[in-house]
Amino acid sequence: VTTYKLVINGKTLKGETTTKAVDAETAEKAFKQYANDNGVDGVWTYDDATKTFTVTEMV
């Protein structure tokens, strides 16, 4: 189990959260659900070296 981080660069919501998951795919599903629940829709990137997902909403 690995800890993954999500950085949110939203128009109205900004911040970070973490989740523990067995792999990046599982973490991504959890983060996308979290973003969807919070009304964040944007471009996703993932950095495997730092285990960090970033979602950026276009203005």
Rank of each mutant, 00 (worst) to 15 (best):
M58G: 12
A21E: 03
K20P: 06
F31K: 00
K51M: 07
T45L: 07
D47H: 06
V22F: 13
K5D: 02
T12W: 12
T56M: 05
T12S: 14
G42W: 05
T45I: 09
E57F: 07
N9S: 10
T50A: 08
K11M: 10
Y46E: 00
E25D: 12
D37A: 14
A24L: 14
V1H: 10
Y4F: 12
V59K: 09
G42R: 01
T52L: 03
E28A: 14
Y34F: 09
E28C: 10
D23S: 12
E28I: 09
G39I: 03
K5G: 03
V7A: 04
K5V: 11
N38I: 15
V22D: 11
E16H: 10
T52A: 03
D41N: 11
A30C: 09
G39H: 09
A24Q: 13
V7N: 04
V43I: 11
Y46S: 01
L6P: 00
K29C: 05
V7L: 10
K32E: 03
N9V: 15
Q33F: 05
G10A: 11
F53R: 00
N38H: 15
A27H: 00
T12A: 10
T2W: 14
V59G: 15
G10K: 05
D23V: 03
D47F: 04
E57I: 10
T50H: 05
T26L: 06
T18N: 06
V22S: 13
K32M: 08
D23P: 01
K32N: 04
T56L: 06
G15E: 10
V7M: 07
E16M: 13
K14H: 12
N38S: 08
K5A: 04
N9Q: 11
D41E: 14
A24D: 05
F31W: 01
F53T: 00
D48F: 07
Y4V: 01
V55D: 00
D48V: 09
V22C: 10
A24W: 14
T19H: 08
V55E: 00
T56F: 07
E28K: 14
D47A: 04
E25A: 13
V43G: 04
W44L: 03
V43A: 09
D37G: 05
K32C: 04
G39L: 06
T3L: 14
A49P: 08
Y34V: 05
T2L: 14
A27I: 01
K29I: 10
A49L: 08
G42L: 02
G10C: 12
T50G: 04
T26N: 08
T56G: 04
D23G: 04
G10T: 15
N36P: 01
V7P: 00
Y34H: 04
T17E: 05
Y4L: 00
V22Q: 10
W44Y: 02
W44M: 03
V55Y: 02
N36A: 14
G10Q: 05
Y34P: 00
T2Y: 15
T50E: 07
G42T: 02
V59W: 11
K14V: 09
L6Y: 01
E28H: 15
Y34A: 03
Q33P: 02
V22P: 10
Q33A: 11
K5L: 08
D23A: 04
